[in-house]
Nucleic acid binder design. Structure first.
Lengths: 109, 109
DNA sequence: CAGGAATATTCCGTCAAGTGAATATTTAAA
DNA sequence: TTTAAATATTCACTTGACGGAATATTCCTG
């Protein structure tokens, strides 16, 4: 999970994947649309590629980059495990405070 | 989105929020469970707090940290906007390749 | 009010990541 | 086979983030 999150935790790369959300694009097109120099675009795409977030389709001397669904599905599944916190978090806090008080009472013995 | 992702993109902080998923905890408890020194725990919690991922409840000289649901909801909503890629991405690629070929044919004129 | 527990902050050193510029690589085309 | 286009890689530089150690702060308790 850290690898995916790290790869996504950068402004330019966020913009890149939001671009690719619409459709696959070549390096040059990405650099153009985001006002990036070509080497920077390639570097960011390499980070995304190493994290498995994009894949490459060579086509002549172009490289078409497109999103891979897996990391997004992984993230989604991971996030699911946090969904409980916006359902029953008040109960959790109550439980915890009660527990704390119990400990403190025990210490008084 | 970058702020949230950056805050989450670190192993120790991932572990912290996974701990807090169960219930709120104090700094000392978090440091204990994760084998972190207290200052490091405090620092990571500060990063999470600055990103709005956790909130603090002072209770005497303890600080109880708990997850805030909002950033997770935000992330979830953001991820939703990518769901299409694992539904109709093949069509997208087809479209794109057709488009590319059309451009190339035009260049031949 | 002195002492101790819990937590936060600061300082320092190190290392990873980002940018820019230059260059290498690959492929198509003349 | 030389040239040009598209992309990747390397190098040098700078900055930000992390860890460790020490210290400051806050609050409770005797």
């Amino acid at each position: 999970m850290e690898k995916i999150l790290s790869a996504l935790a950068e402004q330019n790369r966020i913009k890149i994947i939001e671009l690719l959300k619409t459709k696959p694009l070549t390096v040059g097109e990405i650099a153009d649309k985001l006002q990036l120099r070509q080497p920077q675009a390639s570097k960011h795409l390499k980070v995304l590629h190493d994290a498995g977030i994009v894949e490459v389709l060579p086509r002549a001397n172009r490289r078409i980059y497109k999103l891979r669904p897996e990391p997004f599905q992984d993230l989604d599944a991971w996030l699911d495990s946090f969904k409980s916190i916006w359902e029953d978090r008040l109960d959790q806090l109550d439980d915890y405070l009660n527990e704390l008080q119990k400990k403190e009472r025990n210490n008084d013995d």
